[in-house]
Computed example of a mutant assay.
Amino acid sequence: MSTYGERLKHERLRLKLTQAQMADAGGVKRQAQGCYERDVSLPRAPYLAAITLLGVDVLFIITGRPTLQVGAPIQKPNNKSLPSGC
């Protein structure tokens, strides 16, 4: 998933929500939700803050990288790829 809208749609489908449900939770109209998912427009911070209450991983939507879950192991970088002295 390479676009903001694709990641937003992915999260909505992961949570088994309709566009109308997600829009309602975010305080926008269903049409706005569709525009976000098609990368026609970008949602504002209040929308993103509101949908976190549904369990949406907003960090994933913004960066493409999932939020680190508490208790999940942290992957350490391979030391062989680091230059000497690091």
Results as ranks from 00 to 15, higher is better:
residue 2 S to Q: 07
residue 2 S to T: 07
residue 2 S to W: 03
residue 3 T to E: 00
residue 3 T to R: 00
residue 3 T to K: 01
residue 4 Y to H: 06
residue 4 Y to N: 04
residue 5 G to T: 02
residue 6 E to W: 03
residue 8 L to Y: 02
residue 10 H to K: 13
residue 11 E to K: 01
residue 11 E to P: 00
residue 12 R to Y: 04
residue 12 R to E: 04
residue 12 R to C: 05
residue 12 R to I: 03
residue 14 R to Q: 13
residue 14 R to V: 06
residue 15 L to W: 10
residue 16 K to L: 11
residue 16 K to A: 14
residue 18 T to I: 08
residue 19 Q to V: 09
residue 19 Q to M: 14
residue 19 Q to I: 11
residue 20 A to Q: 15
residue 21 Q to L: 09
residue 21 Q to T: 11
residue 23 A to T: 12
residue 24 D to K: 15
residue 24 D to I: 14
residue 25 A to W: 10
residue 26 G to W: 07
residue 27 G to C: 09
residue 27 G to K: 05
residue 29 K to Y: 13
residue 30 R to G: 12
residue 30 R to F: 08
residue 30 R to V: 10
residue 31 Q to A: 11
residue 31 Q to Y: 12
residue 32 A to Q: 13
residue 32 A to P: 05
residue 33 Q to V: 14
residue 34 G to E: 01
residue 36 Y to F: 10
residue 36 Y to E: 02
residue 36 Y to N: 07
residue 36 Y to T: 04
residue 36 Y to G: 05
residue 37 E to K: 04
residue 38 R to V: 00
residue 39 D to F: 04
residue 39 D to C: 02
residue 39 D to E: 02
residue 41 S to R: 15
residue 42 L to R: 11
residue 42 L to P: 00
residue 43 P to Y: 08
residue 43 P to E: 09
residue 44 R to L: 11
residue 44 R to F: 09
residue 44 R to S: 07
residue 46 P to H: 11
residue 47 Y to L: 13
residue 47 Y to T: 07
residue 50 A to W: 11
residue 50 A to D: 15
residue 51 I to E: 14
residue 52 T to W: 07
residue 53 L to C: 11
residue 53 L to M: 11
residue 54 L to D: 08
residue 54 L to G: 10
residue 56 V to M: 12
residue 57 D to P: 06
residue 58 V to Y: 05
residue 59 L to R: 08
residue 59 L to T: 07
residue 60 F to M: 03
residue 61 I to C: 06
residue 61 I to V: 14
residue 62 I to S: 02
residue 62 I to A: 02
residue 63 T to R: 05
residue 64 G to D: 01
residue 65 R to I: 05
residue 66 P to Y: 04
residue 66 P to N: 04
residue 66 P to D: 06
residue 66 P to L: 05
residue 67 T to W: 06
residue 67 T to L: 14
residue 68 L to Q: 14
residue 68 L to P: 09
residue 68 L to F: 07
residue 70 V to M: 14
residue 71 G to K: 15
residue 72 A to C: 13
residue 73 P to K: 14
residue 73 P to S: 15
residue 74 I to H: 12
residue 74 I to N: 09
residue 74 I to F: 12
residue 76 K to Q: 09
residue 76 K to C: 07
residue 76 K to V: 09
residue 78 N to R: 10
residue 79 N to M: 03
residue 80 K to G: 01
residue 80 K to L: 03
residue 80 K to E: 03
residue 80 K to D: 03
residue 81 S to F: 00
residue 82 L to H: 00
residue 82 L to M: 04
residue 83 P to R: 05
residue 84 S to A: 10
residue 85 G to F: 00
residue 85 G to E: 00
residue 85 G to L: 00
residue 86 C to H: 00
residue 86 C to P: 02
